[in-house]
């Protein structure tokens, strides 16, 4: 285990561990309630950082979005030329499938282009040339790009998705925690943990009630 492997190639885990330990220590040992909540927030940030750092790849893009030229390939300028070629090809493919349907069923399953040409021919038979052009332009847009993508070029989108949910839920629970602290302050007069514990122990002597509604109900009776 040389130093380069331990420190450099696992740098994100070191940062995650340090932040997490700082968060856990703050929750355990700070006296002030607000500081405990801040430690909780640091802990949540460390976990989110851990997951997002798992999603990166060496030559991947930073954000998992398909680049523009991958989706709209450059031969869009010659779309009219392609209309006639593709519609002729589509008509030919459609007739070939119709006449030799029972023989060439296996061709339909194995060839993606023929399947798309069949769908495209379906578009064409519905309308006139304009719609055919539109249909073929759709064909260009729907041309499957799954085979031309190397998955190593993109960052992994799944941890990003999970962490979006985690961040939102973390913010919501942080809000609830802070409102609870306000309530505790209003009732006990302090947000230091030791003073609150003393106030709870002295509560029965002082008359500082813990269940005021019961006392109010008892007073009304």
């Amino acid at each position: 285990m040389d130093l380069q492997t331990l420190l450099v190639s696992k740098l994100n885990y070191w940062i995650f561990v340090i932040l997490m330990i700082v968060g856990i220590w703050a929750i355990m040992s700070k006296n002030n309630l607000i500081k405990k909540i801040m430690g909780l927030a640091i802990f949540q940030a460390a976990v989110i950082l851990f997951y997002v750092s798992l999603a990166s790849k060496e030559h991947g893009t930073d954000i998992p979005i398909y680049p523009h030229d991958l989706i709209h390939p450059e031969h869009h300028g010659e779309v009219d030329h392609h209309v006639e070629e593709d519609s002729a090809k589509a008509h030919g493919a459609y007739e070939k499938h119709e006449t030799a349907h029972h023989e060439e069923e296996h061709v339909k399953h194995s060839d993606d282009h023929d399947a798309h040409a069949e769908k495209d021919a379906h578009h064409d038979t519905h309308g006139d040339h304009q719609e055919a052009a539109h249909g073929v332009a759709h064909h260009d847009a729907h041309a499957p790009i799954a085979d031309s993508i190397n998955a190593d070029d993109f960052n992994n989108p799944l941890p990003h998705v999970l962490m979006l949910t985690a961040i939102v839920v973390g913010v919501a629970t942080l809000g609830v925690g802070l409102s609870l602290i306000q309530r505790v302050y209003r009732i006990y007069g302090s947000i230091e943990e030791n003073e609150i514990l003393e106030a709870i122990q002295n509560a029965s002597d002082d008359g500082l009630t813990l269940q005021p509604e019961e006392e109010a109900a008892a007073q009304q009776e």
Partner: peptide, 15 residues
């Protein structure tokens, strides 16, 4: 997901 999202939903942003 990386390979098939655009073909199934036409949305470039995978997340």
């Amino acid at each position: 997901y990386i390979k098939n999202i655009y073909d199934e939903t036409l949305v470039p942003n995978m997340v």
